[in-house]
C-alpha cells in the first residue's frame, strides 16, 4: 500500500484541497482502487491457472502444453491465405512442422495417460494468418520459446529416460527455429536474442579466447509461461509452481 502511494506523494504538497479529496476529485483514487483490484485479480488468476504439476509428470505436462500450443498454431496456419499461396519449399516446411508438433503433442498425451493435462484452448486472435510476415514471426516466437523452455526445464527432470526424450525433441525444435529464422532473414539461424554469441578476441585468437559462450539462452518455466499464456484462453492459462 505504502509503495503504491509513494509516486503520488507530490499531491501532499498541493495547498488545497486536501490530498484525500484531491485524489477523489481527479479520479486518481479510483485509479488506485483499480490497481489494487488488478493486483488482487492477478492473484486470483494465478489460482485459476492450470498448474502443470510436479516431478517428471509436471515437466512432461509442461512440454505437452507447449507442444499443444505449437500444434494448434501450425494447424491454424494451414487454413490461412499465406499457406495457400506459399511456394513449394515453404509448404513442405509448414506441412512438416505441423506434423512434427502434432506428433510431439500426441506423444506426450499418450505417455502421460491419465496424468495428462486437458486439451488447451489457444488464443491466436492477434496473429494474421494471411500474412507471411506475421505467420513466420509467430512461428519463430513459438520455436525459439520451445527451445529455451526445454533447455531450461532439463534440470527439473528426474529420470534419465525422460531427459533423453526431451533431448530428442528439443534438437528438432532447434532445427525448426533455425530454418524459420533463415526464412525471415538468411544467416539468422543463431541470433543474439537467443544465443549468447561468442566474439573472438582477435582474428588470430586461439579457440576459446574471446567473450560470450555460444550457448542458447535457456528460460525457466515462469518466464516461458508468461509468454505462452498470451496465446491461451482464460481457463487454459498455465502455471508451473513446482519449478522455480
Amino acid at each position: 500500500m505504502t509503495k503504491l502511494l509513494l509516486p503520488l506523494e507530490p499531491a501532499d504538497k498541493l495547498p488545497s484541497p486536501s490530498r484525500r479529496s484531491f485524489l477523489r476529485y481527479t479520479g486518481a483514487g479510483m485509479a488506485i482502487t483499480g490497481l489494487l483490484l488488478a493486483g488482487c485479480d492477478d492473484d486470483s488468476e494465478d489460482d485459476n491457472r492450470l498448474d502443470v504439476g510436479s516431478g517428471d509428470t509436471g515437466v512432461l505436462n509442461y512440454a505437452y502444453a507447449l507442444e499443444q500450443l505449437e500444434a494448434a498454431f501450425y494447424a491454424r496456419v494451414k487454413t490461412g491465405q499465406y499457406y495457400a499461396g506459399a511456394n513449394a519449399a515453404e509448404k513442405q516446411i509448414l506441412d512438416d512442422l505441423a506434423l512434427h508438433e502434432l506428433a510431439h503433442a500426441n506423444f506426450f498425451k499418450a505417455a502421460l495417460g491419465g496424468s495428462a493435462i486437458k486439451a488447451l484452448e489457444p488464443e491466436f486472435g492477434a496473429i494474421n494468418f494471411d500474412s507471411r510476415d506475421a505467420v513466420l514471426q509467430a512461428a519463430q516466437t513459438f520455436e525459439d520459446l520451445g527451445v529455451a523452455a526445454y533447455n531450461g526445464a532439463g534440470r527439473y527432470i528426474e529420470s534419465a529416460a525422460n531427459l533423453v526424450i526431451a533431448g530428442k525433441i528439443v534438437s528438432v525444435e532447434a532445427r525448426h527455429a533455425a530454418l524459420i529464422r533463415d526464412l525471415r532473414g538468411y544467416n539468422t539461424f543463431v541470433g543474439g536474442d537467443v544465443v549468447d554469441l561468442f566474439t573472438p578476441t582477435s582474428a588470430t585468437s586461439a579457440p576459446g579466447a574471446g567473450s560470450g559462450t555460444g550457448k542458447e539462452k535457456s528460460k525457466r518455466p515462469a518466464e516461458v509461461l508468461e509468454a505462452a499464456n498470451q496465446y491461451l484462453k482464460e481457463g487454459s492459462k498455465l502455471s508451473a509452481r513446482s519449478f522455480n
Binding site: 534440470r155 525448426h176 539461424f189 555460444g214 550457448k215 542458447e216 535457456s218
Partner: peptide, 21 residues
C-alpha cells in the same frame, strides 16, 4: 553443467539446420 550442455546441444542443432538449408 547439464543446462550448459543442453544450451550447447540446441545451438549445434541450429547449425545443422542451416548447413542443410
Amino acid at each position: 553443467l547439464l543446462e550448459a550442455a543442453l544450451n550447447i546441444h540446441s545451438v549445434e542443432a541450429r547449425h545443422s539446420s542451416h548447413v542443410r538449408t
